[in-house]
Amino acid sequence: MTWVLENLDLLGSRLLAHVLQAIPPILLAFVLSLPIAKLIAVRGWLRTSLTAGAGLLYAIPSLPLFIVLPLFLGTSIRSPLNIVVALTIYGLALMVPSASEALRAVSGDTLRAATAQGYAPLQRFWQVELPLAGPALVAGLRVLAVSTVSLVTVGGVLGVPSLGMLFIDGFQRGILEEILSGIVLTVALALLLDLLIVLGARVALPWARTPRRKGARA
């Protein structure tokens, strides 16, 4: 405990760096996944091939991706930008299949009814399709946020400052408290983001508040 109290500054700066590397990929992957999902949701062959591709991409371990990417980005291997791009790619691999499923689950009858009522295509997407797909999109976003926060730590082995550096530094210097505080802060940050997403969804999607019983839709 004394180590933690003596190093609050270090923990704070690592946490801040971690947040700055985790938030952009989460937002980018979520926002970019929506148009891609919309594009592929109605095209069967494109959806199956992209979903399969995303599955394979997700099988690639993160560290090799961090190492290979600078070849294409021209960044240094220790650049946070490199981490952000890599994690956005992972986020898309996770989010695109989940978002396309969410959009596909919206009833076609409802969409046709909206068209019949005079909704223009773009208006229908924003005002009918997206809100109805909302709860399933939020479920995908939660998985995306939690796994991204955890993946940022891997950059620590390359020397990119984040909570992951606490593991490396703690291991090299034999400070158990440092590693433990890194783990606790990573998990706490993931759970906090998860909680914020759940609360945000409650405000944005008030109709989804009553938990639907399993199978009630069938």
Partner: peptide
């Protein structure tokens, strides 16, 4: 399984390694 997703793998590896 949800909570386990938040666990940083590198953290576990170094923690057990030191321990």
């Amino acid at each position: 399984s949800g909570a386990a997703r938040a666990l940083p793998t590198l953290g576990l590896v170094t923690l057990f390694g030191l321990w």
